[in-house]
Simulated scan of single mutants.
Amino acid sequence: MTAPGAQGEDRGESRVLVAVDGSEAGAEAAALAAREARLRGGALHVVHVLAWPLMATARMPLPPPDSALHQQAEQIVTDAVHRATEAEPDVEVTWQIVIGQPLRELDVLAQEADLLVLGSSGRGAFAAAVGSVAVHMSASAPCPVLVHRGREAPEGPVLLAVDGSEDSDAAAAFAFAEAGLRGAPLVALHVSPPRPGPAPAGMSAMDALLFEDYPRDTGRDDADRARDQEVAELAIAAHRKTHPDVRASVRTERAHVRPALIDASADAQLLVLGARGRGGFTGLLLGSVSQALLQHAQCPLTVVRRDTAMTARTAA
């Protein structure tokens, strides 16, 4: 439902969608989303999902325009639009207030977007578990999901996490397009988990597999290195051909996936990974790896599902 007086009711042009909630993280996400819209030569749509007591049982009209709740919602989107236009004055920005469950409403709104942008922390409807909002949207949104994280104005390459899965192939397509739009190099990082070493005294073999901090054999022989290199090279081979302008390189590591990706993100301007993987990335969206990245990545993070439509367009 569009708020009375909202601008830009036609969302067909709004290729980048950002959800805001009045928090500073939401405002930063609006600025980031404006930059993404500028890169694509498209428009930005700012949305605030207004949750109130009856939302769970019925779709209700917004409160009267003179109510405090309505005025607060308008102030949230006004502030976010200001941050967006301040960051990118030439980007067309529209806004909307909807009422309902944030996850459900964002799922619907994302149908018309090429990219959904979220803050890494929030308040109101997002405050209880912003990590779960990002995980849910990454798993269900019909477009890639970009979560604002990390240091201010990050520089460096676009970092692509690859594991040879179909999801990482979709992520590779998105990452190459992003690198091309940004004029940035791309680094494809393949992290293979270390071999378990001897289990500590009193720990069963099964428990040892689940205990990340016990001693492990992190070494690789030449055959290991060759296999890891092959996985990474194959993951980006086709995309090198379709994006010959992107300077792409490959890096491999034998390490724990979570800390390896977190550490690598310190030198990147964007981290891109698939929604699900295999091997070291199994259960990424619902498990500890995704939670760690959402909480500790040192640059913005984009999660791409293999069935999302990726249309990173060049500027007109």
Rank of each mutant, 00 (worst) to 15 (best):
R182N: 09
A199V: 06
R149P: 14
A188F: 04
A201P: 00
L159R: 02
A172S: 14
E166C: 04
A201C: 01
A173E: 13
E178K: 02
A161W: 05
V246A: 04
R276L: 01
G156W: 08
A248L: 07
M137I: 00
D213L: 06
S204P: 12
S140C: 09
G197M: 05
L271C: 07
L186S: 06
T218C: 10
P157I: 00
P196W: 05
R258S: 13
E178P: 01
A260N: 05
R225Q: 14
P144S: 03
D217R: 02
F174R: 12
G180L: 00
V246Q: 02
E230R: 14
D222H: 13
D267S: 15
E166P: 14
A268P: 06
V135T: 14
R151L: 15
E155T: 14
P194M: 10
D217M: 04
M206E: 15
R149C: 10
L160P: 15
H136Y: 13
A199I: 02
R247W: 02
G164K: 02
E178H: 03
A171Q: 05
L271N: 01
R227Y: 12
G202S: 09
F211T: 15
S138R: 08
A172T: 11
C143I: 02
R225Y: 00
G156I: 10
G274D: 00
P215W: 08
P215E: 05
H148S: 15
A170Y: 11
A238Q: 01
D263G: 08
R240T: 07
R251P: 08
A134L: 12
E155H: 12
G219H: 13
V250G: 03
A134H: 07
M206H: 13
A232D: 01
V187F: 07
D263N: 08
A223V: 11
S265C: 11
L186E: 04
M203H: 00
A161I: 04
V191G: 06
S192P: 00
V250M: 01
A255N: 12
A171R: 06
R276I: 00
F176V: 06
G219T: 14
A275E: 10
G183Y: 11
A208R: 12
D167G: 15
V272R: 05
S165N: 13
V231W: 00
A173L: 12
E155C: 09
E233G: 06
H256F: 11
C143P: 07
P244V: 09
A153E: 15
P244W: 01
L270F: 05
V145I: 10
A268T: 08
L189V: 08
V135R: 13
F211C: 12
R149L: 15
A179P: 09
L270P: 02
R254M: 11
R254H: 10
E212Q: 10
G164N: 05
D267C: 10
P196G: 13
L159N: 04
V135C: 04
L271W: 02
R151T: 14
L181Y: 04
A248D: 03
A238N: 09
D263P: 01
A201F: 13
L181M: 10
A232Y: 02
R195D: 06
R195Q: 09
R149G: 08
A179Q: 04
A170L: 09
